[in-house]
Simulated scan of single mutants.
Amino acid sequence: MAADILDLSADVVTLARELCDLPSVSGDETRLADAVEAALREHPHLEVLRDGDTVVARTHLGRARRVVVAGHLDTVPVTGNLPTRLEDGVLWGRGTVDMKAGVAVQLVLAATLTDPVHDVTWVFYDHEEVDASLSGLGRVVRHHPDWVGGDFAVLCEPTAAGLEGGCNGTLRAEVRLRGVAAHSARSWTGVNAVHAAGDVLTRLAAYRPADVEVEGLVFREGLNAVLVHGGTATNVIPDACVVTVNYRFAPSRTVEEAEAHVREVLPGYDVVVVDAAAGARPGLDDPTAQDFAAAVLEVTGGRPSAKQGWTDVARFSALGLPAVNFGPGDPLLAHTQDERCPVDQIHACLAALRGWLTGRRPEGLPLGTS
């Protein structure tokens, strides 16, 4: 197969379409990573590094501060929504929101900004849409932390061209219930573990999640049952049932505090934490973050809000980098059959990032102007 060629001097929307139309479902990113690496190596102002299907490109200009701008290459599975199509100023197709439009913005700027006011590390990583243990960014953080070191990070996750600071933490736990198996014709001889789940579900249904203000941004928490498993046959009283709960908690809580809260809501039950990740505080008091927020405000008129979910900004926060989410596309459309991204948001993100990294701010630039 001939090598795929990406033209980084092309219009950003054209490039976004090319990125979407190349295969890149999680686990199948190699072809796209090859194309991204080859395109970046054409630009001598960049040092290009690679680990697996993660590509890193960075400047070495001796600037006082280094910023990291990151995005993932993979998508969830395609469901008949490729190739892309452009209709009435909207780009349709898998990956347009999550997050090839943002990656296109990164690539255009990586290629064209030869003299930014900060040194820049551009990160394009694999395996974001699957188990966190497979994350290309996580792998680089473990094996090459110096590749992604810096003073501030922007993750180009979809935010509808708004700036979203930090992110919630997430915890997944299993509430394990036990009973006694019996023939269903003689149910009184057993103890039904599925019925025991009723009290757990009632407690969760009655739970009132908190809105927590952290550094001026309000994070919405949530504690919900997401899976229920129990029973072995239609004529057997089940002797085991597992209710899986997911707690989304404000970044002011540690993982340990989040676990303690879940146990407080479900006292006396066998609660086993099976996965957890800390959130990230907004970090908008950082001077570089404030400068970036001002650049976004000048282009879009939008003010920072909280990221209601977990993103890889938490990985940067763990490294000591304040980090924000900023990218084109409505996150509510990510992974949907009708995934689509307005072109004006792509241009707005390009303009804001370019203005910030060059120090040349557009005056009164309306949303959608590049």
Rank of each mutant, 00 (worst) to 15 (best):
A35Y: 06
D239V: 01
H118K: 03
V200M: 04
L201Y: 08
Y125W: 14
R17I: 01
F326R: 01
V117K: 15
P342A: 11
G302C: 09
A2E: 15
D119Q: 08
H127K: 13
F292E: 14
T311R: 09
E363W: 11
V97H: 03
D51F: 08
D151N: 11
S9K: 07
E264D: 10
P328N: 08
D126A: 15
T59Q: 09
R263Y: 11
F152K: 09
R85C: 07
P251T: 06
L19T: 03
L86Q: 05
A197E: 11
V245T: 12
A39R: 07
R41F: 03
A161G: 08
A38Y: 07
A111M: 06
P83Y: 04
C156Q: 12
V226A: 11
I5T: 14
G95A: 04
L134G: 00
V175H: 04
G355H: 01
T121R: 11
G149W: 02
M99H: 00
H118Y: 15
R17G: 15
T189D: 15
V180K: 15
T84V: 05
S187G: 03
A351V: 04
E174K: 13
V218I: 14
L284K: 04
A3F: 00
A293F: 05
R315T: 12
V343L: 09
V274L: 10
Y247S: 05
S9Q: 12
P322K: 08
